[in-house]
Write a protein that binds this DNA or RNA. Structure first.
Lengths: 333, 333
DNA sequence: CTGAAAGCGCTTACAG
DNA sequence: CTGAAAGCGCTTACAG
């Protein structure tokens, strides 16, 4: 299994140079030679040592992905897209978790850099300025998915969070809701927090509706904080709908509502965000804002590979979102 | 960023051998030398090329994991465990999907082998005999998580599926259920199908209860097949509880029950399996069989690393399961 | 304590 | 069409 090219060369009665050429289908060798070498390779079950090849060629045909975790469905879907596109192109993927607070980011980046990955994808990174500086020093092509790259000059792929929140809130208003909570967002988060809050506010302005600051129940996109936040706030507000930062936050909100004896959607409507797989697992199924997660993953590796091959700079992409109507929002009109 | 050891050596006025020694803290160099070299390394932001190091040492400090997908929460949790333990030990993880039907298994294995990973973890692989033969030829330490390794002589880590199904069914019987469906299992699946059906049957025998073959509604662990299966069967059976193959299957079953106007758990009890994160996302929250997914992941890399270091053969582990009571099962007594 | 040198397994000009 | 040789960036006996 772990025999080397010289062994193959010996068995085939040719030089290693020739073996290398046929392995890589480089041409420049006779038909008979090619066939003989291929037969030996197959018979021996020989597999090229990519480490050695990569060292020589200074190219590892691998992509590193740094992601907070992989158990959140949101991230899982992105990784699916990354993996599929990478596989189709013969790239390997190295996975490293940055941790939910970004606490392992530096370590993750170092590991991947030491491995000399050919490209780097950052997913929802929670990066400090130091981290950004580190990334800026990197000469390997990289792209950010759903990360704060607005304030920073990085290539990115994401939806327009402002517009998405605006349209989602409009949608709810269109259904006759006038008192709408905003649940689970971190207001200081540049990626999704700030712009979505703006979009949400804008929708009220447009509609000439009054907005009560108490309706904004911040959190961290997760179920627990959303649940807690809603539970506490529900006594002081009388919203008829809750627009949540993620499908998980929506589930947290639903749990809290139920504890208070409110039925979803009869007594209160709940809207999610992401359209991750959890949106269809819960009950009622979530009306939510669809993000093309899988495609964002595959697009990002597509772009990286292109950048590797052409040496061009990676163009950013704002991808389309969509409102998916399911069961958790009711019309008041 | 991409400077090499010779450059560092030059700047520090020493040989590359010395630089190598201090990078690896091998000792055998003077204090002053060490400090000087370290300073230069830091200043230059030098990072060792792991490809070159690995080539020379014939050891890549990396673990390959082959997994059907990563978006199923079940798998996500396992990968979390793998990633954390790998990180703690300075190992990188290479991720490759085998596809839900195992269609990419061979490709995945080849990629990882070419990369000369130091260890290999197979998660829930759906392998053909050919695949097993391939694995058998591999000289790199490997372990199977929740895979069919009973008929095959491989190291593995999993729960006792027979016992788990037996105790879960006992639990339901203990709650007064006498007519219990078994949903979403593939009866020909050696890993979970066969043994769990046996355990389920055994529980009825023990309790001197009659079992109706129509109660066995097979599937593929997913929500769709479970939903469909239950929907079709529900008219012909009058079970008071459904024991499902996974938490996803449980959700499928719940959907089907609701369509028929049955409330969970008031009209029918539903029990899941796995205790993946979805078990707490759905409503009502699932009473389910807990598998220590995260731990299974971390244990597997622990064992692999040990095997790498000691060269010992990897011992299999049967890990404990647990019945977690939540809201989806009601007592009839 | 330190360096020169060989070698890990490949690839790729360069000759022929 | 094919081979000898250099070299990718490290590590590690072997001398000293």
């Amino acid at each position: 299994m772990t025999l080397s090219m010289v062994e193959i060369a010996k068995r085939a009665g040719v030089s290693v140079a020739t073996v290398s050429r046929v392995m890589n289908k480089k041409g420049g060798y006779g038909k008979a030679t090619g066939e003989k070498v291929e037969a030996i390779i197959k018979e021996a079950g020989y597999q090229k040592n990519e480490m050695a090849s990569g060292l020589k060629r200074k190219f590892t045909r691998s992509i590193g992905v740094i992601i907070p975790n992989v158990v959140t469905n949101y991230f899982g879907l992105i990784v699916e897209g990354i993996e599929e596109e990478a596989r189709k192109n013969g790239y390997s993927i190295l996975l490293a978790h940055s941790g939910n607070g970004g606490e392992h980011f530096e370590h993750a980046l170092a590991t991947l850099t030491e491995r000399r990955v050919s490209g780097l994808i950052f997913v929802s990174v929670q990066t400090t300025d130091d981290d950004y500086d580190l990334v800026k020093q990197s000469t390997t092509p990289h792209i950010f998915i759903s990360s704060d790259s607005d304030t920073q000059d990085f290539s990115k792929i994401k939806i327009d969070d402002y517009q998405a929140a605006l349209e989602a809130t409009r949608y709810l208003i269109g259904k006759g809701h006038k008192k709408i909570g905003l649940v689970g967002l971190n207001p200081t988060d540049k990626v999704a927090g700030e712009p979505r809050i703006k979009g949400y506010r804008r929708a009220f302005e447009e509609a000439n509706l009054q907005l009560d600051e108490k309706w904004i129940i911040s959190g961290d996109f997760g179920v627990e904080t959303a649940e807690k936040g809603v539970e506490i706030s529900l006594d002081q507000i009388d919203t008829t709908a809750l627009f949540c930062a993620s499908d998980e936050a929506a589930i947290g909100a639903m749990k809290a509502c139920r504890k208070k004896g409110l039925n979803v959607p009869e007594d209160i409507s709940i809207m999610g965000f992401d359209d991750s797989t959890t949106a269809k697992l819960c009950y009622p199924e979530l009306t939510t804002v669809h993000q093309p997660l899988f495609e964002m993953g595959s697009q990002s590796v597509f772009k990286i590979i292109q950048a590797i091959e052409t040496n061009d700079v990676i163009e950013s992409d704002i991808v389309p979102f969509d409102i998916i109507e399911r069961e958790s929002v009711v019309s008041l009109t």
